[in-house]
Design a protein around this nucleic acid. Structure first.
Lengths: 252, 252
DNA sequence: CGACGTGTTGATCTCTCTCAATTAGAGTGG
DNA sequence: CCACTCTAATTGAGAGAGATCAACACGTCG
């Protein structure tokens, strides 16, 4: 871990996440409060642990740049990835509630995070209810992701899980990258092991499943970039029909 | 669904959850705000849907009495139970964030819930930051449960999953029931199908796994009551060693 | 160069699923 | 009181998705 030197730390008013994160303040007062709670910015390298499972005194922070993931392990060391973290995601809300971290966080790429004071959670709620509300919102959004992952791991086939992970990441990424060119694909720092750990599959079976989807022409991963070749078919397989998704479900 | 007649509705000051829920107000002003946001109390019977998946305009509510569960289904109708809801649990935070319900909620027993106004989330945050903070807390706690379930379904064997579910429910129940007698067991309204749906297992395999644990003398389910016969062995199997849980994990 | 991480592929094994049929208890109606 | 129905639990048998074990290929890096 390295701290960003003071003169390179972003001023909240110039935050690169300005257009994306719900967490960002809108009024001048809110801005000042957030700024006052900001402690520093830190950098991590790929594979570096940002939060260790069980660590105490976990800070609250936001991802500014790069990818990371939350995970939890069993006593035997089996690791399950709970969710992937992208710029704008808030981390550490759960941690602030308990004595020690309920899950670990590890960087996938070079990672830049914005770290807040330990009691920022409370200060933000207290001084600007609108910010508190946004924190709740982000927390709920985080739970949506986990709910969805649980449904996948519990009830979907390997193929469906992989397809869904790809499509969901693709969608999240596209939002963050407005000037996106379909032909170039998107940065995709996950190894097959990460995918396996996120989907509750073995490494070998994950590999075979990816290969199968690729042979069907649905996607391609090369040189750390993801190319979604057939978005429609992939979304279909992923049970992510944009259309009237909910209405289609059997009502009885 | 039936609404509780006005004269039988609890006054917030006399809320039966007083001693349990973090959500409950502590100051007089907070109490008044919560009371003002309370719209009604409703009753549901076992198997009745409290929230339908995809339903719009979902209210915020708290469980007062009884059991329920949150669930999500695939396009093919496969149902995954995301978490079980007990008295004191807050439901509908996620829902308030999106247009439509991200998950359904179904009653397991006779269920009594306390329903709030649609914009209660915002009102509570705004008027009493401390309450907003508690809502965030409860939301984060809810996510902890799902994180844990995801780890189980992703990485644990059928036996471990069942054991863990039983122990976790047992612990949650014991907190809610201070005058608890070990010999009498606890109310346990889950069918094997519910357990299967929560753990991502088939009904048949869930049954066999339960039987195996029972034969080992770890637990017993009879007449809708759960008896934990060997708490230590069960917790062991469930990877829930109360002792120094976190410290035991491999640090590298 | 050797070590290591990641991807790849084949062979084998097993946990868990699916299909199928039976039993037991609760409720309903004649 | 008994036949009828429905749900939940139960048990057996066979099938399969995915796990495990084992090698090997390839690029990177100290």
């Amino acid at each position: 871990m390295k701290n960003v030197p003071a003169h390179q730390v972003h001023d909240c008013a110039l935050c690169p996440l300005k257009q994306f994160s719900v967490f960002l303040p809108h009024s001048k007062q809110e801005l000042e409060t957030v700024q006052s709670q900001k402690r520093k910015e830190s950098l991590y390298g790929p594979g570096e642990e940002v939060i260790r499972e069980g660590q105490i005194q976990v800070p609250l922070f936001t991802v500014l740049q790069g990818w990371a993931f939350r995970f939890k392990s069993t006593a035997t060391g089996q690791r399950q990835i709970l969710s992937f973290l992208l710029p704008g995601d808030l981390v550490g809300v759960q941690q602030n509630m308990a004595e020690s971290a309920a899950h670990g966080v590890e960087a996938l790429t070079d990672l830049r995070v914005c770290v807040f004071e330990r009691d920022a959670m409370w200060q933000l709620h207290q001084q600007h209810p609108a910010l508190g509300f946004k924190i709740t919102w982000l927390t709920a959004k985080g739970e949506w992701l986990v709910d969805d992952a649980l449904l996948s791991v519990g009830k979907r086939s390997a193929e469906e899980r992989v397809a869904r992970l790809l499509v969901l990441l693709f969608k999240r990424l596209r939002v963050l990258q407005p000037d996106f060119d379909m032909r170039e694909g998107m940065v995709f720092p996950l190894t097959q092991q990460h995918i396996a750990d996120a989907l509750g599959l073995s490494l070998v079976h994950t590999h075979r499943t990816l290969r199968r989807l690729e042979k069907k022409g649905l996607h391609q991963v090369r040189d750390g970039r993801l190319h979604v070749c057939d978005p429609v078919a992939l979304a279909e397989l992923a049970d992510l029909n944009d259309s009237t998704s909910q209405a289609q479900r059997p009502l009885v």
